[in-house]
Design a protein around this nucleic acid. Sequence first.
DNA 1: GGCAAAACCCAAAGCGCTTTGGACGAATTC
DNA 2: GAATTCGTCCAAAGCGCTTTGGGTTTTGCC
Lengths: 348, 348
Amino acid sequence: MNLKELARTLGLSQTTVSRALNGYPEVSDATRLRVRQAADRHNYRPNTRAKALATGRAMTIGHVIPTSTRHEMVNPVFADFISGAAEVYANNGYDITLSVVRDADEEEAYRTLASKGSVDGIVVHAPTTDDPRIALLTDLGLPFVVHGRASNVTLPYSWLDVNNRRGFQRATEFLVDLGHRRIGLINGLEHLDFAIRRRKGYLDGLSARRLAPDPDLMVAGEMTESYGFSAASAQLDAADPPTAFLVSSVVVAIGARRAIEERGMALGRDVSIITHDDDLSYFRNDETVPIFTALRSSVREAGHRAANMLLSQVSGSKASPQHELMEVDLMVGRSTGPAPLGVTRRQG
Amino acid sequence: MNLKELARTLGLSQTTVSRALNGYPEVSDATRLRVRQAADRHNYRPNTRAKALATGRAMTIGHVIPTSTRHEMVNPVFADFISGAAEVYANNGYDITLSVVRDADEEEAYRTLASKGSVDGIVVHAPTTDDPRIALLTDLGLPFVVHGRASNVTLPYSWLDVNNRRGFQRATEFLVDLGHRRIGLINGLEHLDFAIRRRKGYLDGLSARRLAPDPDLMVAGEMTESYGFSAASAQLDAADPPTAFLVSSVVVAIGARRAIEERGMALGRDVSIITHDDDLSYFRNDETVPIFTALRSSVREAGHRAANMLLSQVSGSKASPQHELMEVDLMVGRSTGPAPLGVTRRQG
DNA sequence: GGCAAAACCCAAAGCGCTTTGGACGAATTC
DNA sequence: GAATTCGTCCAAAGCGCTTTGGGTTTTGCC
């Protein structure tokens, strides 16, 4: 059933039917009602493609999610982020399309998205410190919102980020205040902007407490469980091991916990962990006392907000770039405790 | 830059340019080359919406991923599945669109998808035993492939599934052969077809080894880490606790491991675990010796195959329904060992 | 050289919708 | 009562592409 048929059935013109359904005032309430009823009696829904062509608006938002060429991974945070965003899109009549793209083909992917006209706006994930996509997209004139920031990019653009620096500084100070002097940082890949900021927070925290950083205690890698395990293992097995870890995600923290327990030590007593926690649905860390002491910031909520920001940009007139910085909560759980006696000693 | 402009630039008709770009034979190699060069010099890409409207093919596949109304969760397997599928789509020029849908609105979502004409085919996730979507989609005439099966549905339809029953039977027998007599089943939600099949496999395995099942050892729930923890905890704290668990996913197994270790027991010595393993990218369980003994079947690979199946259905002529059953590998890792002495005793 | 067959190209219709620019009668105004 | 406005509705153009149904040259062949 299409517009033409529906119009013919009703003995009306396409114009009138279209207007009736789209809420234009030039049609009487009586006919509007009649049209509406006929429409859902015949299960009519306007053809998206035709509508998009006619209006020039695709009513679709694109998410391009990067996948590294070496090991085909897709970060589990995307699932939660997108599910948060999708809710907003759905409520506003937008569809969502995904491009899973190898990092090499990224630029091409954006160009294609822009010129094929299949999306009205896009969300940029996982920005690097001087991410070239921002310049590219501004250049292409395609509305976009960045989830995260690109520290070295000076162009104005819309972003939504978590205050990673402050969070990690706070966590570091928290650990130091518990008596920990050697704190390992198990970070995400440090070409990504958020990882840089976290490291900065960690360093700032140490320095605020007058501790010197030790390069041996700082590692970066892809945020998998086994990375958490091996990174923590290496540090624990070294001479002068850390008594605490600052970890970049719950998944990694689970690996670190495994390393700790495999060595016969107790989490929260012999070794402490604070982790960033995206509040992923399948890893809810929220029993009455959370398993991990964590810097919590819901990535789902971030998706929600980013979507709203993007839509306001897409549908509203040329709004100036918007920014939003989400603060993190430090939730104290069972993975932190005072530094074990006898190991503590002052440094730097 | 659109077709008309490009044609004018070249001094050719739209027809010729269109044909040149789409590889039709009615155009000379010389002009084809000229057109191609001009096209990518001007960064021309045909407008998807217009093309879709003209051809009647959206060149888009839909994935509707369900999210339960109570707790907004999106299963991490979707990310890997879709990333596997996306690769196939991309290679064939298809886009992918996502509908994240509350279970209540499912039917409406499919109807909309069908009548809006925005997709050429869809993948059905997480089927229940008598999933109504299969009848609905057959009725709507929209090509689809089910990831999993719906045991009670008699209609013919295309599916791709993992041999869950056989896998779980094999794992059960493996555990029994190690001397375990009380084996806990920590299953996924049992309105889902795969969970039912797994339970059946578990029961078949017990019965093949002449053991009677104990209802107290069988639980089902949403596959989260904390579910794994609490389910395992409950069984371990009961009188006559199990010496082994059969678990539905690595995420759940991690929770179960936590329960075991929290009780001062050692995984693989005091208590064994075999888990189903979807080979999710962030939980690769594949060190030289896998952490968990597991029934492994890559969900990414499943996505790959399902996509191929769907595309052959969408683009090929009216092919009859296809089926594919993937077998699982039992990888022996460090989470299983002989049943501890003194606990073993014969049952049933 | 003449003719049919290829080879190459084009104008125009059509995909299903929105939107412009009226048309027409009824209600309002003076 | 004539002029205006208002309320309703419609025909047709247009969004950017594909595709049908020709046209016009070239080419091959006797």
